[in-house]
Design a protein around this nucleic acid. Structure first.
Length: 348
DNA sequence: CAGGCGTGGCT
DNA sequence: TAGCCAAGCCT
């Protein structure tokens, strides 16, 4: 075993994290759910989602039998909703093709939402298979230790990091090594203020030797995010509001949402088109929601109706009683607006 | 293969 | 505060 790995493993036994929820009674299924939730998402955010998800879907078979809406209800607020849709799709595939969670890297990697790093992480963690991983933590440790130039999201840079990852990953105790690398990245080799005095590989770290910890890994090239606008139409009849399921691809795919319009005019014209009996219509307080790739200015417009219109009771839509338990997914802005409507309703 | 895809923690 | 970016993957 190489010296890098020996030092990392020694550190793991003393300082590695061993009490996270998905580290107890490990199964391929539970570790998979956690790994997917943890993609681009911090541990503290994931914990409550993981607990509720496993509580509702304790096994692979339970998940495979679930409705997409209920899976997305458990994903509401977590973001990157394709992860939830792919989780269900993969569960159905696994049950249909294998009858259980597959154990070969290629089989696992072939499932939707599971890349090479996630596949390696699952199989090494649960079955002690000797696969290297390359997540954000490992990237940061390696980019600093070997002074790897360029943004780590760049393909060539990532390829180089994979080479280093395979080089240092031992074929024995791989599960502990991988966990240790993620822990070092998360708790020692932090993005800002790295704690090099606590790092097991500080002596051989090129960034530390040259005092360049702050410059590595190199930042993503910055871009100005575009500003977009939308008007959300909240059709309300008594205590119910109208929501439509969004197409399964694209932004907020598969979530239930208010109808959107580019302008107030267009929104109001729809009242006539759909023959709505509007009691009154008013703008609520607008707000800005930021995505990874643009800013969205949202103006909610509350449209109170005299009766339930028939014309717009289409498939994949629902009149939702605002204080009722939800069994479908919504975005954070939708949740925010529903919360406000719920306040209004409770006062009336 | 660079951009699409969410949200919240941290500084 | 506003920007950066997190246990990435898909197209």
């Amino acid at each position: 075993m190489n010296d890098f790995a020996s030092r990392v493993l020694a550190w793991y036994h003393l300082h590695g994290r061993k009490n996270l929820p998905w580290q107890q009674d490990k199964t391929l299924y539970k570790v998979w759910v956690s790994e997917v939730m943890l993609q681009q998402t911090q541990v503290t955010t994931v914990i409550p989602y993981f607990e509720k998800f496993i509580d509702r879907f304790p096994t692979l078979a339970d998940l495979a039998a679930a409705q997409e809406d209920e899976v997305l209800a458990h994903w509401t607020g977590l973001g990157y909703y394709a992860r939830g849709r792919n989780l269900l799709k993969a569960a159905k595939t696994m049950i249909a093709q294998y009858g259980e969670f597959p154990t070969e890297l290629e089989q696992v990697h072939a499932l939707p939402g599971i890349g090479l790093s996630t596949a390696g992480a699952i199989l090494s963690s649960v079955l002690q298979q000797p696969h290297a991983i390359l997540d954000g933590n490992v990237k940061r440790v390696l980019a600093r230790h070997y002074l790897v130039d360029g943004w780590t999201g760049n393909k060539k840079v990532q390829d180089k990091l994979w080479e280093f990852a395979k080089e240092v990953t031992p074929s024995k105790d791989t599960h502990h090594f991988n966990q240790a690398m993620m822990d070092i990245g998360a708790t020692v080799c932090k993005r800002s203020k790295p704690l090099c005095e606590q790092c097991p590989v500080a002596e051989t770290c090129f960034a530390k030797a040259q005092g360049l910890q702050k410059q590595y890994p190199q930042p993503k090239p910055k871009k100005v995010l575009p500003e977009k606008h939308t008007f959300m139409q909240i059709l309300k009849y008594q205590h119910q509001v109208y929501l439509i399921k969004r197409p399964s691809s694209g932004l907020w795919g598969g979530l239930y949402a208010f109808s959107e319009f580019e302008s107030l005019d267009e929104l109001e014209q729809s009242h006539a088109t759909q023959a709505l009996n509007v009691i009154k219509s008013r703008e609520l307080t607008g707000f800005r929601h930021t995505f990874s790739h643009f800013h969205l200015h949202i103006t909610p417009v509350l449209v109170e109706l005299e009766n339930l219109p028939q014309s717009i009771s289409e498939a994949d839509s629902t009149w939702y009683q605002v204080d009722e338990k939800r069994d479908f997914g919504i975005s954070t802005p939708t949740a925010k607006i529903l919360e406000e409507i719920s306040q209004l309703v409770s006062l009336s």
